[in-house]
Design a protein around this nucleic acid. Structure first.
Lengths: 203, 203
DNA sequence: ATATCACCATACGCCTCCGCATGGTTTTAA
DNA sequence: TTAAAACCATGCGGAGGCGTATGGTGATAT
């Protein structure tokens, strides 16, 4: 019995990778990327999967690569936007960098799974690029010294990261105003501009 | 054959709960709390476990309760310390609240697993107590208005949380000075004192 | 001394998932 | 139209984890 349900189209490796990312976003854990559940979700079986991928790790790699590509793409778009207005570009950068964590749990899921070396490496590349972009903006547009720019960027990023974490884990402790992304971005941008000495003072 | 290895002592429920917390800290994931691996680690078998606990969930609950008890104990100790010097008490509070995340991965592991409702509830209680304590200190000792105190406390906490997260996931992006806990506490305390308007401005 | 109770080992069935082997079914191309 | 290639379903074996049943073994009390 040729048991196709209706007239399902055939799957590609990209379909599997995307399904893996979906599962990671929905379940919030790398263990959600499992062949058999994904196959069920896709209306297929393992036979399809093992044609496109060598094993589960290969699928995870593909999903990570997909996420990294999407993230860097959004970053470059944000950098390119509003070329004339530095403030607008800064806010757009912040939105891309930190708003993602609020809108899309994938990033927090990966952060939670940073024990895995491949996950950590992916995160390192993405986050480094973001910090680099933000620091560069501060350095050129606000004429801040390099170290100060990097320090402020890092500070803002950590703040938003912790905020996103709390928003996901225990939203009750955050003020209601934090629901509005525009408000959050606004606050982050102003604290970025008006930061005090900042950075680690020691040594 | 009475196969005791040497002359192992008998286990208690607390032994199992502690072993569960150890596993959670070492592996960094709730899935590390698994009966059979823990039994092997303890040199026992499932027979022992199911005498002391009804099932795996009960063990997780016990581990969470143990962590919560330990956390609140450390918090009250910090509040009690240095009663005469508000600054010293504030720094001690910060050390307890945020230093924990740096020294002990358990907290970050739980945060990563906040999808589980029981984990989220535990975290909410602990973190709320911490924020409450810090805000109260700022309110009474620095004579800050209530909302301002809460806002600054939350801000500092988010910052340290994000910093701890990054330190664990991708330590490369943090400056080397961040290795020194005293430096971190120092920076956090000063930014807590000298924060600008802070808080969400909106609505 | 022996009966009772607390504690534990062993073995079993069940489930979920990975990975492979095999054979079938499409699609493409010659 | 038929041969090859791409794609996929099915079935199997194995690993690891949960929970239960059952029968010990040690300590404790009488």
């Amino acid at each position: 019995m040729p048991q196709r349900r209706v007239a399902r189209r055939r799957l590609t490796a990209a379909d599997w990778a995307e399904a893996a990312l979906d599962a990671l976003r929905d379940e919030g854990s790398l263990s959600a990327i499992a062949i058999e559940p994904l196959a069920a979700r896709l209306g297929a079986t393992k036979g399809s999967f093992y044609w496109h991928f060598a094993n589960r790790d290969a699928l995870i790699d593909a999903a990570l690569a997909g996420w990294e590509a999407r993230s860097t793409e959004e970053l470059t778009e944000a950098v390119a936007a509003g070329e004339d207005d530095p403030a607008a570009r800064g806010r757009e950068l912040l939105r891309t960098m930190t708003g993602l964590a609020h809108r899309d749990p994938t990033e927090l899921a990966l952060l939670a799974e940073a024990g895995q070396p491949r996950v950590a490496a992916t995160l390192e590349r993405v986050i480094t690029r973001r910090l680099e972009a933000l620091a560069a903006l501060l350095e050129t547009e606000l004429a801040l010294p390099r170290e100060e720019a990097r320090s402020r960027a890092l500070h803002a990023y950590c703040d938003q990261l912790g905020r996103a974490q709390l928003a996901r884990a225990i939203p009750a402790v955050l003020p209601e105003a934090a629901d509005d992304e525009e408000t959050v971005i606004d606050s982050a941008w102003h604290s970025l501009l008006g930061a005090a000495a900042g950075g680690q003072r020691g040594a």
